[in-house]
Structures are given as structure tokens and as C-alpha cells.
Amino acid sequence: MSDPMSDSMSDSMSDSMSDPMSDPTSEQPHTPERTDGSAMPKPEHATPLAVLKTYKLFIGGAFPRSESGRVYEVTDPQGNWLANAPLASRKDARDAVAAARKAFPRWSGATAYNRGQVLYRVAELLQGRRDQFRAEVAAAEGLSKAQARAAVEAAVDRWVWYAGWTDKVTQIAGSSNPVAGPYFNLSSPEPTGVVAVLAPQDSSLLGLVSVLAPVLAGGNTAVLVAGERTPLPALSLAEVLATSDVPAGVVNVLSGRTAELGPPLAAHQDVNAIDLTGAADPALAAELEATAAENLKRVRRPAVDAEDWTADPGTSRLLAFLETKTVWHPMGV
């Protein structure tokens, strides 16, 4: 299997060169031109040279390589090479947390309505690149074309769903409390801060969106550790986020070993919450939870059984990263 991104690029280019009248929305997949990473495409009617994509991290709105200079091979479930992904180090994690902290005041201070619009636009752009994501998800998870299409559609749908929640979550999680005195007593949910998210290992896009979008919808900023074996859709999602209206640093994407990046993030004193969904090993999850207790992080434990990412997500992930703030205000009578 060849690199899905460079395939789709060279496909679309050869489409437009060989037959400008072809339907650009055609979903007919093109046969890969290469059977491994080294062979070049056949030079028939001046097919452009295939350009292999260098996947990179996403930190503070920029696309750096890992500070360590390391990469690792990403393969499909059959073991065929897909691409090299950066193998992020704890210093990359540190930089990502610093970027997320810097972005927090603006993102958490934006109106809920504005956040909803920004997140909705992410869904628009995700939809616009669905062909690329279908190819990447199919390659990453070994799905059929139909399954991959369904996964991408569900991911777009999920993103829109959470975008709609930004200005509604206060109504379900907030309250006006009766108190014995001449005061208004109001509770409202507020963002927690910087959230480290260990993305699920089993669902490279739908699962990823399902854990990332609720964190953002609540007004938090995120440091996302992509699934270890399937990081490519996450790294491409970073490109979508970079070209949307999401401010730099609100989402930072790291690829690498979950067991290597989890501990420094769990121990980091400037991370306010951690989502352990991607800590598939129970021993690792327990260790990270204990480490996270040091500065009283909010912790979301991984599910005991495999999660069904197609099921109705509910609001539990949204509420897991919100703090309730209660205000007493004199009635003035």
C-alpha cells in the first residue's frame, strides 16, 4: 500500500491533466501507482512525479518536526509501509503544553456562540477533504471503502454535533440555586484549562474527533496524543485545524508512543486535566492516573470495554472537562 496522501494528490493532478472534464467529485478510486515506497510512477503522458508527504507535528499553529529528530514507520494493519510519522519526545509535549496555555485565555474567553461557529467551520473543511480522510482512515484501520466513508461521515457529523453544544451546555450543566438569603446563586460550567488527550488507539478519525471536539467545545485547549499505530488521520486533521479559524495553539497534535508521552503530560504541573481514553494498557492508565493526582488534574478514565464510537456520545465527555463555578450576587432589595 502506498502513501494515501500522495496518491490522492497525484490522482487529482493527473485527473485534471488527462481529462479536464472529468467529474471532480467522482469517488471512483484510482489504483495506486506504486506498490512500495521506492518505485516511481510510470512516466505515461507526463504524469507528475509523486511527492511523498512528510507528516509533521502540530504545535502552536506551526508544523515542526520532532525536537528529537526522530520518526517512526506507520504501517497499515497488514504491515505495509504508509508513511513516516514524527516520534514526539517529552520536550515536544512540553512545547505543546506551553502553546496550549498561551492559547487558553483567548479561546476560553471567546463567546460560546463564536466557538460554535469556529468549530462548525472545522466540520466544513473536514467535509471538503473527505476523500483524503477516507483514504487515510481506510489505510490506517484496514477498512473497506464503504466503512471508511461511513467513518468519515460520522466524524463530520460528530464535529457538527459538538459545535452545536458550545452555547447550550450552560443550560444543562448550569443552574440557579435556591438559597436562604437575598442572593441570586448561579452555577455555570467553565473550561478547566489545558487538557491532555490520549486519543483512542482503535478509531483513527471518528474516535479522535469524539474525544477532541468535546474538549474544545467546552472552551479548553488541547494537547492531543494521536493513536500510536494510526496517527496519520490525526496529523492531517491538524492541517484542517490550521486552515480553519481555530486559533494557533488551541489544538496541538503529537504523534508517537503513548507510553512515552503520557507520563510527562500526566506529571506536567501546567496541565489541568487528562483524558486517558488512549491508555489501552490498564497498568499504564493506573500509573498515569496516580501521577495526575499530584496537581489534582481532572482525569477521565479509559472505558472498561471497547467503546462503540458510532453510538450516541451523550454529554459525558463534554462535562468531564468543565468546572462548575458558583456565584453569589446580592438581589439589591
Partner: peptide, 14 residues
């Protein structure tokens, strides 16, 4: 300095 003594990354809250 806090990072060196504790092994944990610190933050502006500290």
C-alpha cells in the same frame, strides 16, 4: 529549577 528538582514540568501557576 523546579523541573530539575522534581522531574515534573512546572507552570506559571507555581
Amino acid at each position: 529549577r523546579q523541573k530539575l528538582t522534581t522531574g515534573r514540568y512546572s507552570g506559571p501557576d507555581y
